[in-house]
Nucleic acid binder design. Structure first.
Lengths: 235, 235
DNA sequence: CGAGGCGTTGAATGGCCTCAACGATGGTGG
DNA sequence: CCACCATCGTTGAGGCCATTCAACGCCTCG
């Protein structure tokens, strides 16, 4: 909970917002400077440590968030208390779209890796989206992207053997990346993404390491053998 | 592929569109008569038999659809050729939202039960949505609803034992219903919704019947013992 | 230095899958 | 009209894979 940047600075490209993913990914790219001046709310920027909770399911959604760096998990709890991770949010992803509709947050958003986010009021986006066609389109694209992700988690990460699921998750973590390196999450979290137990996850990862599909780089950081992982993923 | 109704009739409440779910569920409720007159494209209405395919994944999406009655499955195929059903569309649901973004359809939409749909051009919705705030909000709500459904399929229908999954699917099929009666789908389709095999699905249903949780009404139509199914669903 | 969290591994169980067979149903063509 | 076939739901037997319960080593942190 650190920095506090005014929208004026955001627009002029000063401060940290010059590199803000919001600008690169054009969520606000269609706004004029006049639009920005209508807004008096500050945009806050946060640095979060693993384990921190950005918001909880059922909380009144007053804010949207953009992930600058790091990773968060979106968690839903089952009646029996066990958890299921339904999505990840990483750099450039937007969190809390439901707040635009004045709905409570649908998930618990928990930080997995050191993370920076920008926070801005939902009602600002709601108001601007209603009159700015470009933002309107961008918002729909964001929802569509989340929906595609959700479908992919079902078909790729919740289908097939444990070996296949783990391999597909690993491949997914390095997509749109130049490098084949990858920070893994805790085994329990990976299990909750894949619908398998912690032990099975651990056994599968360990087996991949023995087979050379994964090479240890440092603590929980690995080099991936992408071609062979693809073979495993499709069986 | 039967009826063909002009938008003029749609607006005036004539013909079949008087009961059109679009009007009840206010996707178009915010439009003025002037808005309607801007549109020259006809709205077509279709009657579809089980097995019919409304659109395929990758098709250029020129149309959106609203389901009037019946049910369709949204299917995605895995690299190995097996299928996974990621969502159902039933009365009042809108299909093909991705077409508004000029993206190809993401799923194959296949009819499960005798179904009626209305079809309207995506570019009309795109144009009206950009200038009509109420439609704009309604569209976002539709995406959010689809997203919630997708998350629920992951947490409820792809988690836990086969008994739990089948019970949760049955309960889900009678939600927002006055009656406890329910038409089931083929065992293979149910398996593809739950991530289990046809045989396991059949065995589970048969066991539920023996335990009185399901009572045969007619061919594949059942009466549900909701309280006890809830018990099974949560274990 | 002890405690707790996490990853790993072992052993045993059980639930689901695979392969197979069979009856019922419904549509088709002789 | 009926034999035929295809489809679908059901059931059985056997095997495998993931779960469950348990133990152990390593690390960080108080």
């Amino acid at each position: 909970m650190v920095k506090n940047v005014t929208l004026r600075e955001a627009w002029s490209g000063e401060a940290d917002c010059r590199n803000c993913s919001l600008r690169h990914t054009v969520l606000f790219a269609g706004l004029t400077e006049a639009d920005f001046e209508k807004i008096h709310d500050p945009i806050d920027q946060f640095s979060l440590k693993p384990g921190a909770c950005l918001y909880r399911a059922g909380d009144r959604g007053e804010y949207l968030f953009t992930v600058r760096t790091g990773a968060l998990k979106l968690v839903q709890y089952l009646p029996d208390g066990s958890q299921r991770i339904v999505r990840l949010a990483r750099a450039t992803d937007v969190l809390g779209l439901e707040a635009i509709l004045e709905a409570p947050y649908q998930h618990e958003a928990v930080v997995l890796q050191p993370t920076e986010v920008c926070r801005f009021p939902a009602r600002v986006v709601k108001a601007l989206g209603a009159e700015n066609p470009r933002l309107h389109t961008e918002l729909m694209s964001r929802w569509q992207r989340a929906l595609s992700e959700a479908d992919a988690w079902l078909t790729e990460l919740s289908t097939g053997s444990a070996r296949q699921r783990v391999a597909r998750l690993l491949l997914r973590l390095v997509r749109d990346r130049e490098s084949c390196e990858c920070d893994l999450f805790g085994r329990e979290d990976m299990g909750a993404m894949l619908g398998i137990t912690t032990e099975t996850t651990s056994r599968t990862i360990a087996e991949f390491k023995r087979q050379g599909l994964l090479v240890d780089l440092s603590a929980n950081r690995f080099l991936l053998d992408i071609p062979n992982l693809h073979r495993v993923a499709e069986d």
